[in-house]
Computed example of a mutant assay.
Amino acid sequence: MSSETFTQLLDRLGNQSLYVLDSRIPKSAYVKLDLSVTNEALKTIDVSSSEKLENYIDKHILSNNAQVAFGGYIETRNIYQRSNYFNNNPKTERNIHLGIDLWIAAETPIYSPLDAEVHSFQNNTNFGDYGPTLILKHAIETIEFYTLYGHLSVASIKNIKVGQQFKQGEEIAKLGNASVNGDYPPHLHFQIIKDIQNYKGDYPGVASKKDLDFYKENCPDPNLLLRLE
């Protein structure tokens, strides 16, 4: 058994040029986006409207001369309050985001950051959920882990098969629009998962405060791989 920890492995892998969007998009073309409860600007935006939120994000990208907006790991957000899927119990409200979001146009191709095989996939159709979702399994030396890709197009999971192999840098999917992706502006939810537990085609991407310690351990910061900041 390797003495290298999971986090150390991710950090080492991140020294490579890993990407889930087109590798020709320079890191200088990514701009940080704050969707947290502390962002005063969002208080004037109806974040329950995917169209109005998309306009806000598009303006943010344009005003920063960027191509992609990113962010959200361990970010407490209000945008989930519109959906009972996250808030059916006020004592366990799930509003802390566990992945990184990459906000870019629908139909944008998504690529595997590492060699992988398909673990599972599913269309998660709850309001505010992922919509079409793909989970890949990675085996690096003695360590196995998973990456989740949410808010994809329906076509992305139409002809895929469990066990299918992808090489690093190979296209795996395309982004969906608000009509299929849980009613959000187009974006990729990218999440690292150490222990997939018994989930297939789905895994919590938003946590409650009471469960956060577990999920921070099981779902480390995707920037360990992507190095966007």
Rank of each mutant, 00 (worst) to 15 (best):
K174G: 02
I160E: 05
P220E: 04
D202V: 06
Q165Y: 05
Y80C: 13
Q191L: 06
I74T: 08
L10M: 11
N39I: 11
L62P: 00
N159M: 05
D211H: 13
D22W: 01
L9R: 13
D101M: 03
E4Q: 14
Y73E: 02
L152C: 02
K52L: 13
G163L: 09
I100V: 14
L9M: 15
L212Q: 07
S23R: 14
D46T: 00
D115R: 03
V31T: 15
S49Q: 06
S156K: 03
N39E: 12
F127T: 12
S156D: 05
H151C: 07
E171R: 15
L102T: 04
L62C: 07
A105H: 07
Y111E: 09
F6L: 13
N123Y: 13
L42M: 13
D34N: 15
I135C: 01
A29T: 06
E51K: 09
Q8N: 15
A69K: 05
D46I: 00
A116T: 08
E171G: 05
T7G: 07
Y85P: 00
E40H: 13
E107Q: 14
D129C: 04
P132A: 09
P132C: 02
N181P: 10
I110G: 02
P109S: 13
N65C: 07
Q81C: 05
N15E: 12
L226H: 11
P109K: 12
D195R: 03
Y203L: 08
K52F: 00
V118S: 03
V118D: 02
D101T: 07
N124T: 11
D213C: 04
D129L: 07
A116V: 04
